[in-house]
Computed example of a mutant assay.
Amino acid sequence: MKFIHTSDWHIGRQFHNVSLLDDQRHVLEQIVGYIQSESVDALVIAGDIYDRSVPPAKAVELLDQFITRICSEMNTPVILIPGNHDGAERLRFGSRQLRSAGLHILGDLKRVTEPVLITAGETTVAFYGIPYNDPETVRNLFSADVTSYDDAHSYLVDEITTVMRNDLANVLISHCFLEGAQESESERPLSIGGADRVSYKPCVNFDYVALGHLHSPQYKGEEFIRYSGSILKYSFSEEKHNKGVTLVEVNDQSVTSRHLPLQPLRDMRIIEGELQTILEQGKVDPNNDDYLLVRLTDRHAILDPMGKLRAVYPNVLHLEKPGMLATGEQKMNKENLQRGELEMFRDFFVQITGQPVSEEQDAAIQGVINELNKQETQV
């Protein structure tokens, strides 16, 4: 039996006030393609389907289109859990009725011990889902003595392991932060000060653990305890991530997994260098539509650098100028101050006209600066 493990779609997300809906649609189409080409028997989504608990209408429409194609047109069951970005109550609306259509929304903590059974050939897999939760919720629902995220997660995992059958392959789906795993800037903290971390050790009795929340593909503790990672880069800290989904194959005696890459509509990159060099590069860059963070190393003043950059790289989203922040000993005497003003004007003139200041113009502006300084002295 084969299933795809994915998570952290964050449908409806904006990045630097730019909608990523078209980018998300582009990679979701690739997931559809993998379901077809790999003859996948189920799709597992480990939380953060939406980017916020009340998603925009277009985000809901996109998810509806995608789920309809997978469940109704391709007859492939979908199993999903809410993440910390999702509104669990809203997401699981109609979940009992939707089961018959092949959409299994495991959003009720009180039903974590009830698996979804999927059979392909002679293999049956039991999928258990633990939606995002916090210690207070678990304590109140189960009258359990839990005070931390780790306590709560361990309690729920133990509840499942006491009822799961040994004659079936057992898969756990959870949205949590495993201790020691690699995080990214785009993930919303579950709590303050690292209290949200949980141990992987209670999960070792499962045949596969499909995790969500962290955006980098990785495993922790055991190779079968995996984060698939997000489907797109959602921060520049993820520039080097290889985004994709995880294809899991369950046989009678083994469980194997492999990474299936997703190619973005626009990549997310960091470019560093002097403005003129970057502008020349942008004229021939075949991927000039990518989302960019640009770090300018120029040490002189630049007029409208963002406008110039967007002429060749239309999706520059963030600009940094570390070269302008270089510090050193500054002698603020009158002579150096006058020279600095003249140099700044020369830079300004070049930025406006594209030509250097002529000797006559240079002499004229020097005279103006001298006159202004003389008047300042007389006041």
Results as ranks from 00 to 15, higher is better:
195 A>Y: 03
101 A>V: 10
129 G>T: 03
367 G>W: 02
262 L>D: 10
119 T>Q: 13
283 K>V: 14
301 A>Q: 10
226 R>C: 06
273 G>W: 04
102 G>R: 06
270 I>P: 12
333 N>Y: 07
56 P>R: 11
54 V>L: 14
203 C>I: 00
41 D>R: 09
330 Q>A: 09
45 I>W: 05
183 E>C: 01
163 V>T: 11
11 I>G: 09
155 Y>S: 04
289 D>T: 14
261 P>D: 07
334 K>F: 09
3 F>G: 01
297 T>P: 04
254 S>T: 14
9 W>K: 08
223 E>F: 00
226 R>T: 07
311 A>K: 15
157 V>N: 03
22 D>R: 14
48 D>M: 11
265 L>Y: 14
299 R>K: 15
57 A>N: 08
229 G>W: 09
216 S>L: 12
265 L>H: 09
93 F>P: 02
323 G>L: 08
135 P>C: 08
100 S>G: 13
194 G>R: 07
1 M>F: 06
281 Q>N: 12
352 I>A: 10
254 S>Y: 08
255 V>E: 07
116 V>W: 02
227 Y>S: 06
56 P>W: 07
360 E>Y: 05
360 E>P: 00
35 I>Y: 01
282 G>A: 10
321 K>P: 01
48 D>E: 10
137 T>V: 11
248 V>K: 06
104 H>K: 05
114 E>I: 02
207 D>T: 11
199 S>W: 02
205 N>K: 15
38 E>T: 04
6 T>K: 02
210 A>W: 08
315 N>Q: 13
252 D>N: 09
42 A>F: 07
263 Q>Y: 08
95 S>C: 10
175 H>F: 10
201 K>C: 03
297 T>W: 05
69 R>S: 05
107 G>V: 09
331 K>M: 13
284 V>W: 01
4 I>D: 01
17 N>W: 00
269 R>G: 01
373 N>D: 05
180 G>S: 04
32 V>I: 15
72 S>D: 08
315 N>T: 07
184 S>G: 02
151 D>M: 01
26 H>Y: 15
202 P>W: 05
289 D>W: 06
356 P>E: 15
102 G>N: 09
201 K>T: 15
167 D>A: 00
281 Q>M: 13
215 H>W: 07
12 G>C: 10
80 L>G: 08
182 Q>S: 14
232 L>D: 12
50 Y>D: 09
